[in-house]
Nucleic acid binder design. Structure first.
Lengths: 341, 341
DNA sequence: CTGAAAGCGCTTACAG
DNA sequence: CTGAAAGCGCTTACAG
């Protein structure tokens, strides 16, 4: 039988209340008493039953997700996953709230973070904007004992406790590897389509992509990056223009959102003449484009996994428990038309 | 406040014991009484607190993993993941045991399954051999109220409750897609290396591989399948022989284990002349081969995910709870040298 | 600084 | 067929 608080109390010759004080590091216990109890705990190999403790405390975990009110499919899907988690949460003594902020607005994000510093949930997960004042707001939350997890886009490591998202440099490198190999003409020209170089995930994907292309496929020429602000109409115009001007455009890497515009522009090109296309995020439109051959490969991050992982990590942090790194690593999915889920 | 058994008892005008009987479908309650209680449960929107119930029952879940005593890296890794889960399990009111059986031995597997039919754990996870007597043994376990999950290699759907493993047909299709695209010579010749056509996962990978190659890359010739029984020495000999005889061998798909032998044979070929190689399972040796360019892509199933998923599903089944399909889907990882974890 | 008692939400003998 | 009481492992006022 696993030892319980009763066993500790008996062995140490104290009451349950005192055992509890020591176990939870609460004040008001003499040094000698504390030591007696700690010795008993050690010799019994006691591990506390968290479920019983939470039952007694009537504890419910409160976590908040701060999401940008962006209308692209990925962010919509992310929000839906958080909502699905909210529905399941009541069963698990967890309460999840969603707060939204304008996209790409660091000030608004900082204000929200400061708001939750006051409100004091057990943990906060948010899509980061990697700026100093955001970092410092995150640090203040951590100092206040609130668990902080970045979601999808990271802050520099020091200022949060965990990042639930993919390694975007590796994603860009992977895209380059596939692009280099898929290009039948070894001396191809490749265009890169980005949302904004202001966001860290886009910057990192570009960085990874460029470094592998130049290392392993030096014969491939890279055109100037097109910044389309994740907007479908802008994307469409840019791609159409690029296809027109660069007759030998053999490849396109779309590292941001706004793929609907990309796909529309590509559909105007005769099938035999289409470039190799690698894009990010599996959505209804990229899935369809994979199936009909408009897009060759899609790199994806699973929003559901990211959300569930963020919650598991927030809970572990709230309990002071270690996280299982291998379980919480968010993987880069590579989808071809043959392994679609 | 969430309603509790006390609320039900008060509203229905009965005792806690009676509420409990109804809640757990135990006999010995008059129809009228039962209905009163059920009406109260419904109108209150009661959902039971599983943690509290398990605490009161002193319940601990008992799950058994039946693993083949195979010495390939993948199976060794799988076992290690189960052992890691065993160590964590005491905290979670779960007890996990490992039983081993000789590899590829259906009789031994059936005997083990029958053994656990008697012993009666809450759930059993096992690496299946897809034969009728195995299926019927699995069915008897399910009928006895024991949760049954297949791991890594499946049984036909009817006879188990869940499969924790990848879609092997999709894996083979994905390998073919990559192979077809990576082959620079469109009229290449491709060799296939399998463990044994007796196991379902190998058969399915081959099936998927062949169908995509013939659909999408009809110009690629496929040599007769080499069965190497997942043995490194046999594999090495077969590959060396194939490379010697088929001077124009441009690609190899290794769909089983025994990749160490494959890699040894490949290393004898001058780098510029090596075929495109796609293999399964990320191990120390395939990882190294990816990095030095001996292997071009590795399809992988994450043994840790499979084990954790199997446990979550066994627990859900034991509690009569639904499983989150999206969470439990085991994905096919595609590793290139640029996205290694 | 320390302890006795009640309680979290559920289940389980036991008595009737 | 039904209920009162004790208990699972822990925590929390409250009293001293």
């Amino acid at each position: 039988m696993k030892p319980t608080v009763h066993d500790i109390a008996r062995l140490a010759g104290v009451s349950l209340a005192t055992v509890d004080r020591v176990l939870n590091g609460r004040p008001g216990v003499r040094g000698v008493t504390r030591e007696k109890v700690e010795r008993a705990i050690g010799s019994l190999g006691y591990v506390r039953d968290l479920a019983a403790a939470n039952l007694a405390k009537g504890r419910t975990y409160r976590f908040t997700f701060i999401l940008p009110c962006n209308d692209n499919s990925f962010m919509i899907g992310l929000k839906r996953e958080v909502e699905a988690a909210m529905e399941r949460s009541s069963v698990e003594r967890t309460r999840i709230d969603i707060a939204t902020v304008p996209a790409f607005d660091a000030d608004a994000l900082v204000r929200k973070l400061e708001h939750f510093l006051i409100e004091g949930p057990d943990g906060v997960a948010f899509v980061a904007i990697d700026e100093p004042r955001v970092r410092s707001a995150a640090e203040r939350l951590v100092e206040a004992g609130i668990a902080v997890v970045t979601l999808v886009s990271d802050l520099s490591a020091s200022s949060r406790q965990h990042y639930a998202g993919i390694d975007n440099i590796a994603a860009g490198r992977t895209a380059a590897n596939l692009m280099g190999r898929f290009l039948s003409k070894v001396d191809g020209r490749v265009g890169v389509l980005a949302g904004s170089m202001m966001v860290r995930d886009h910057r990192e994907r570009l960085e990874g992509f460029l470094s592998v292309l130049s290392e392993d496929f030096p014969q491939v020429a890279i055109l100037p990056v097109m910044e389309a602000r994740d907007d479908a109409a802008v994307t469409e115009a840019l791609v159409r223009e690029a296809l027109r001007r660069h007759v030998g455009l053999n490849g396109i890497y779309s590292l941001g959102a706004g793929n609907r515009g990309l796909i529309r522009a590509l559909r105007e090109v005769p099938p035999g003449k289409r470039p190799v296309v690698i894009a990010h995020e599996l959505t209804a439109s990229t899935r369809q484009a994979l199936l009909d051959g408009t897009i060759d490969a899609v790199l994806n991050q699973d929003a559901g996994h990211e959300v569930r992982s963020a919650i598991r990590v927030l809970k572990a942090k709230a309990d002071g428990l270690p996280v299982l790194a291998a379980q919480e690593r968010i993987r880069i999915d590579i989808f071809l038309k043959d392994n679609l889920p």
